[in-house]
Amino acid sequence: MATEAKIIDARGSFCPGPLMELIKGIRQEAVGVVLEVWSSDRGSAKDIPEWVARAGHEVVGNVEADNIFKIQVKKLR
């Protein structure tokens, strides 16, 4: 996990949901920034990396603690 990351607290988010919150963050932040999405949805650990790969960014961390999934994504383009 990167030590410096912008937190996106998407716990309890059913709509728009953690992945949409990440896409929002990716769109508005600069290249090189690391975003850390917090999600209470187990599906995020799978669907966030899937989108990140398609969109050409990089997952730099993916951990779970107390049923909260924390996924770090670096904006590459």
């Binding site: 059913f14 709509c15 728009p16 949901g17 992945l19 949409m20 896409i23 669907d47 899937e50 989108w51």
Partner: peptide, 9 residues
């Protein structure tokens, strides 16, 4: 739609 299904819900 932006994510992997037809709606976020």
């Amino acid at each position: 739609y932006p994510i992997g299904r037809l709606h976020s819900l």
